[in-house]
Design a protein around this nucleic acid. Structure first.
Length: 205
DNA sequence: AGTGCGATTGACT
DNA sequence: GTCAATCGCACTA
């Protein structure tokens, strides 16, 4: 979506447009845009991979109740929950239910759009394909960390969601990645055929 | 105050 | 394909 000046526009997504269900939201977010405004300009990417962590899911950080770390999961749908995994990688999630209900959608990969040169600098990597292929990588590329935890992604600000008027991509479904206590439910969604999707090949068919 | 564990990544065989 | 680095945080006492 570009205007005549060639600059991409990022229309925000009203909260009421977000599905009121974690799994539906995970699917809905495929093809939408994640936009990061920094002092040095705009960084953005198309969401090509998500995972749902719904109500009652034993693997969800919200499963054992609200804590200092996970409280953003209990905000109304469309707020950022950001945490650090393995001491080094920040993970970007979207809260996905009503206020007081803990659930979220993990954004696992982006197709880089604007600010690619900045992302390459942030990641120390040239390959555009590898800039945001993986949850920790995309956070590093977009300069996202715990200081954006709790931000409303449905309002203008340093981190937000945006629409993109493109043909709806073909969405694939698989089990989730990287969980030790694996559930059998199909809670991972991705753009079929996209080179920007993470995960083993057999899960991306 | 101490312990154990990851919703990962990058380096390596 | 394997494997270890790394540290914030929840949990136990």
């Amino acid at each position: 979506m570009r205007n005549v000046g060639g600059e991409r526009r990022y229309p925000t997504i009203a909260r009421v447009r977000l599905p009121l269900d974690t799994v539906l939201l995970a699917r809905y977010l495929i093809g939408k845009l994640l936009v990061r405004e920094t002092g040095n300009g705009t960084l953005s990417g198309r969401i090509v991979e998500t995972e749902a962590y719904p109500i009652g899911d034993a693997a969800s950080h919200a499963h054992r109740g609200m804590t200092l770390r996970n409280r953003a999961l209990f905000l109304s749908r469309g707020h950022a929950y950001i945490y650090i995994a393995y001491g080094t990688s920040s993970m970007v999630n979207v809260s996905s239910e009503a206020v007081g209900v803990g659930a979220g959608v993990l954004i696992r990969a982006l197709e880089p759009l604007d600010g690619i040169a900045s992302m390459q600098r942030n990641r120390g990597v040239e390959s555009v394909r590898d800039l945001a292929r993986g949850p920790g990588r995309l956070a590093a590329a977009l300069e996202v960390d715990r200081s954006q935890d709790g931000i409303d992604l449905c309002r203008p600000g340093p981190l937000r969601l945006a629409r993109d008027d493109q043909a709806s991509p073909e969405i694939g479904v698989s089990r989730r990645i990287g969980l030790s206590r694996e559930t059998e439910r199909l809670l991972r969604f991705y753009v079929r055929g996209s080179p920007f999707v993470s995960g083993p090949k057999r899960l991306n068919l």
